[in-house]
Amino acid sequence: MKLTKNQIDELYKFTRKHYVYHYDVQSELVDHLANDIEKIWEQTPNLSFEDAKNNSFKKFGIFGFMDVIEAKQKQMNKRYKHIMWRFFKEWFTLPKVTTTLVLFLSIFFFLKIQFSEYILLGTLFIFLIFDVINQFKNRKIQKEKKGKTEKIFLLEAMIGNTKGGFTGITALNFFNFVNLSHINFSALEIHWSIIVSLTATLLCILFYVIHYIIPQKAEELLIETYPEYRLVNNL
């Protein structure tokens, strides 16, 4: 006996109920449960769909789908870092390396200005406000999408929300660090100025890649990661 379309939909709902929120992870588990239920029915054809489903789920152990979710998250973190690195590297090859150099020199000379730390704090603050607005917009889009299709891929959620951990919170930490450390940047020795400028340059590029470049290329990256992305979204 084969599972009907409705029963497959039931299984998707079942995985969601057990904390599997992303479509890519759900799909694999649904196919697994479906195969197992069909196998169970071969041996005991009179068993109800509900019972067969529960018997199959029990085989995942007391933690249910948790181990699978965790492993998938780890795998995707690795992939996200790989993508991040791919775009980050570009800023150190021609022609983009010129922008990187200009940025580095600008920060370096900017730090020499007296009271530059206050200007830096101001810039970070403005950035934070923009980030909060951006996050808010993104959440809204994701929420609307969730309401409509409920097919959100794990990498899609990472590109939109968690951003591999480099969100505005990281910027807030820098804000606090600069604010509390009371460093007078203009009085720093040259080697410290270079280190500070270099770190700031690298961070600027990283934020730009994560907040602008990767989201812009989201669809391309999702198609590359998920062979089923086109199939599901009818692209």
């Binding site: 694999e28 588990l29 697994h32 085989k59 995942f60 152990g61 933690f63 181990d67 699978v68 965790e70 492993a71 998938k72 780890k74 795998q75």
Partner: peptide, 9 residues
């Protein structure tokens, strides 16, 4: 199942 998928991933 709880061991197979994490290993595959």
């Amino acid at each position: 199942e709880g061991a197979l998928y994490p290993a595959l991933h």
